[in-house]
Each structure stands twice: as C-alpha cells, then as structure tokens.
C-alpha cells in the first residue's frame, strides 16, 4: 500500500525505511503509538490525538467515510506523500 502510493506520488518506493519497534521502551523513545505508523520526513501522516499512549499496539485509523481501520485511508496517505513532494 505504501510503496504503491509512493510510486504514484513519484517517489522511490525503495527509499522506505522500515523500523521494528519491539519494546515498550523503544515505543516511548520513538513516540510510537501503534503499528503501522507512517512518517514522511518525520511527520506522521495522520497525527495521533493528544495524549495517545505510546506502546506496542495496533494503530486505529479513521477513514474519510467514518469507518475504523487498522490501515490509513489511502487518500490520506496519498495526500501526505504529495504534500511532501511539493514541499
């Protein structure tokens, strides 16, 4: 999903850096609120709510049509990547 979106945005899909967060301490250190978290130039593509606890959990995303999903809305991902390209 991410690599396809990167290709569509004109980015090199091989430039993805995959990080495994496997301890609560690592989650705290990296302000990791769940998997998957996608950051573009360090910025989360969907900023988590204030006070969201860090930890080893699945991430909750809300799609534009209101549905809850373990994955971000493809359009949100696409918009974030295109904004990064534009900047």
């Amino acid at each position: 999903m991410l690599r396809e979106a990167m290709t569509e945005a004109g980015l090199d899909p091989d430039s993805v850096e995959v990080r495994e967060v496997d301890t609560d301490e690592a989650a705290r250190r990296q302000e990791f609120v769940g998997s998957p978290t996608i950051r573009v130039d360090g910025a989360d593509i969907q900023q988590p709510p204030d006070g969201e606890p860090t930890g080893l959990a699945c991430r909750v995303y809300r799609h534009r049509d209101g549905r809850i999903s373990p994955l971000p809305d493809p359009q949100d991902l696409s918009d974030a990547l295109r904004a990064a390209v534009a900047s």
């Binding site: 959990a57 699945c58 991430r59 909750v60 995303y61 549905r67 809850i68 999903s69 373990p70």
Partner: peptide
C-alpha cells in the same frame, strides 16, 4: 477497546 479490527 483499542484494537482497530475489534472496533471495525
């Protein structure tokens, strides 16, 4: 409460 699959 927190699992996105359970919530979905």
């Amino acid at each position: 409460n927190h699992c996105p699959y359970a919530l979905a």
